[in-house]
Amino acid sequence: MASLATHLSAFVFLFPTGLHRLLRSSSLYLENPSIYRSKTWYFSEPRWKNLDLYALIVALPIASFSEIFIFLNFTGNPTYRFGFFQQSAVVFLFWVLILLIIFRENFNLLHINEGFVFVLVGISFLAEYSVIGKGITGLSGTVYELLGALALICAGCCMYLSIRPWSFFAEFLLSSGLIFKGTWILQTGLSLYTDVFALKGCQKISMVLTKEDADVRCDLEEDGLRGAALMKLLFIGHAIGVLVLSFVSFGLVSSKRRSRNGEAGGPLLAQLDSQTVFMRPNAELELE
């Protein structure tokens, strides 16, 4: 969480992953709601379409080791430094989970219940919640608390899906939560780590930290209060935007599937209509 680049890279992975999950789960649910079951990961065919998964396999260990060997050189705050170690461990944990999912789906080496994997993912989100905004207070801490709330929502959805995997509402909420996490973490990076999008009357968080907890510096107390209110308002705006995007995506998948069913049923309906046309005169003769 130490720079705009970190937040931007998180957005690049979270937003497409959540959107891909939303589209695939919606398609499977609309295909047959009675037999729908949520999956830890929706693999695509052919395999080369799973670019988001392969990117995470490569990027997550790099991000984990980067937080250990690079970012610790810029901080003098022991609490903030310990937070980097925790964040590195959480990122590494998600990487291990992805490897576990891959081995479970592609190789018959691990006979693990998918519900158990959902529990592990939920625990990972809880671990992420415990380290989000570590060593950051004030206005910045408020922004990261909102991000932590999204991690809690994702954790709750995973725990619920481990018990009731047929709940599409929990799957829809989890996918939307990942999209929301992506957009909000980008907003956090722009608002807290850049001068262009910085809050009025406040400065960005500096990479060179003192022994005090990190926070944006505001000229006046009123500027900090106004900045906190503005970030909460932006959070509500992001929530509405993500909700609209999720419903529009579901509607597009539904209309696409309905159009396919219409194309398949068109010739059949035409054949049935032609048969009824020929049957009507015979029926009239029988009545006479």
Rank of each mutant, 00 (worst) to 15 (best):
residue 5 A to G: 06
residue 6 T to A: 14
residue 8 L to C: 10
residue 11 F to M: 02
residue 18 G to E: 12
residue 23 L to W: 14
residue 26 S to E: 04
residue 29 Y to L: 06
residue 32 N to K: 06
residue 33 P to W: 04
residue 37 R to S: 13
residue 38 S to Y: 08
residue 41 W to Y: 15
residue 43 F to W: 15
residue 46 P to V: 06
residue 53 L to K: 07
residue 59 A to C: 09
residue 62 I to F: 08
residue 62 I to Q: 10
residue 63 A to F: 15
residue 65 F to M: 11
residue 70 I to N: 13
residue 76 G to V: 03
residue 82 F to T: 03
residue 82 F to D: 02
residue 83 G to E: 01
residue 85 F to P: 00
residue 85 F to Q: 01
residue 87 Q to D: 08
residue 90 V to D: 04
residue 100 L to Q: 08
residue 103 F to T: 07
residue 106 N to H: 12
residue 111 H to S: 11
residue 119 V to I: 12
residue 119 V to Y: 15
residue 128 E to T: 11
residue 129 Y to G: 02
residue 130 S to T: 11
residue 130 S to A: 09
residue 135 G to V: 07
residue 135 G to Q: 10
residue 138 G to D: 08
residue 138 G to Q: 07
residue 139 L to I: 03
residue 142 T to A: 13
residue 142 T to P: 03
residue 149 A to L: 11
residue 152 L to G: 03
residue 153 I to L: 14
residue 159 M to G: 10
residue 163 I to Q: 05
residue 166 W to A: 10
residue 170 A to F: 13
residue 173 L to M: 15
residue 179 I to V: 12
residue 192 L to G: 05
residue 195 D to N: 14
residue 203 Q to H: 12
residue 208 V to F: 10
residue 217 R to P: 03
residue 218 C to K: 05
residue 228 A to S: 12
residue 232 K to E: 06
residue 236 I to C: 07
residue 236 I to G: 11
residue 238 H to R: 05
residue 239 A to P: 03
residue 241 G to D: 11
residue 244 V to Y: 08
residue 246 S to N: 08
residue 247 F to W: 09
residue 247 F to Q: 13
residue 249 S to C: 12
residue 250 F to G: 11
residue 257 R to W: 06
residue 257 R to P: 00
residue 263 E to S: 14
residue 263 E to Y: 14
residue 274 S to K: 01
residue 278 F to P: 05
residue 286 E to N: 10
residue 286 E to S: 08
